[in-house]
Computed example of a mutant assay.
Amino acid sequence: MTKHLALLRGINVSGHNMIKMDALKKMLENMGFQNVETYIQTGNVFVDSEEENAASVGFKIKQEISKVFGYDVPAVMVSKKDLELCLKNNPYLKEKECETKKLYVAFISKELSPLALNDLKISNFKPDEAAIDSSRIYIKYAVGAGKTKLDQKYIEKKINVTATIRNWNTVTTLLSMFENKL
């Protein structure tokens, strides 16, 4: 069995694409996934599967959500290693007075080129900041995630990817959950 973490984009946010976690869990169990566990209401879900290919698992989850709930909800698959790299490579954690409540990570559906940061035109969002590392964008919001235009929709449009953003507390909790499950 392989442990997978699916980050579902855009469920239970501002009253859109509402899916109760119990219903999601039941759907996933009916698909044959084992040890299904969700974390908070925004679509962080662990599943065990005979399928080793994370992209295949994510595609199946996306298809079943569409069939059962009628929503187009992409699943960005994140490995334990991805989460560990977040802790290791987030440049904002190295700052002297790091406020983790302002830190977010955009998980991206594919590998990014170093030039993707230029395509995002981050300078247009000052004082917000961002840095790219492989398939992650580290974001430091000056005021807060709710008061910026540097959001998931903007990222997706500018660099033609699927993205889902999680706050730093969620990222570290998901890593802890991954470590306790293996």
Rank of each mutant, 00 (worst) to 15 (best):
I122A: 03
F46W: 08
L117K: 15
L5A: 01
Y154P: 06
K81D: 14
S79E: 06
P91I: 14
K121H: 14
F69V: 03
N53P: 01
N90L: 04
K140E: 03
I137K: 04
K26H: 05
K20V: 01
K88A: 12
M21T: 10
S56Q: 07
V45I: 15
D133I: 02
T173C: 12
T100Y: 06
D82M: 07
Q41L: 06
E156T: 09
S176K: 15
K121S: 11
K147Y: 12
G70P: 05
K94Q: 00
A55H: 08
D22T: 15
F69W: 00
L83A: 05
T172Y: 03
K149S: 15
N167P: 07
E129H: 02
A106M: 14
D119Y: 08
N89C: 07
K126M: 12
S134L: 06
E156H: 12
Q41F: 01
L150C: 13
K62F: 12
I165C: 08
L112C: 11
K88Y: 07
V78A: 08
K102M: 13
P114W: 01
E95A: 03
I137G: 03
V143F: 10
S113R: 11
G32Y: 00
F69D: 00
M21F: 08
T38M: 09
G58Q: 09
T2Y: 13
L117A: 14
V36F: 14
M77W: 08
S134H: 07
K26R: 14
K158Y: 02
K101M: 10
Y104W: 12
V73S: 03
A55M: 07
M18L: 14
K110V: 06
G43L: 11
N17T: 00
L28P: 15
K60G: 00
N167V: 06
I165W: 04
K26Y: 01
Y154T: 00
D82F: 08
Y92C: 00
L24Y: 01
T170H: 11
I122M: 01
L93F: 00
Y104H: 14
K3F: 09
F107A: 07
N53F: 00
L112F: 08
K67C: 04
G15P: 01
Q152P: 02
N169M: 12
K3H: 14
V13P: 01
E156G: 13
Y141G: 03
I122D: 00
K153T: 13
I132Q: 15
A163C: 08
S135Q: 12
Y71W: 09
V45W: 03
K158S: 02
E97L: 05
K60S: 14
V143L: 13
D119P: 00
N160C: 09
D72P: 02
A23M: 06
D119I: 04
K3W: 11
Y104S: 08
K96C: 00
T148Q: 05
S176H: 06
D133G: 04
R166A: 06
H4N: 05
K158R: 12
Q63Y: 08
G146V: 09
I155K: 08
P127E: 03
D128I: 14
V143C: 01
P74S: 00
I165T: 15
P127K: 02
I11M: 12
Y138K: 09
L24P: 03
K140M: 01
K157N: 13
E99A: 05
T172H: 05
N124G: 13
K94T: 03
I65Y: 06
G70A: 04
T42W: 06
K101I: 12
E29T: 15
Y154H: 06
S14T: 11
A54S: 12
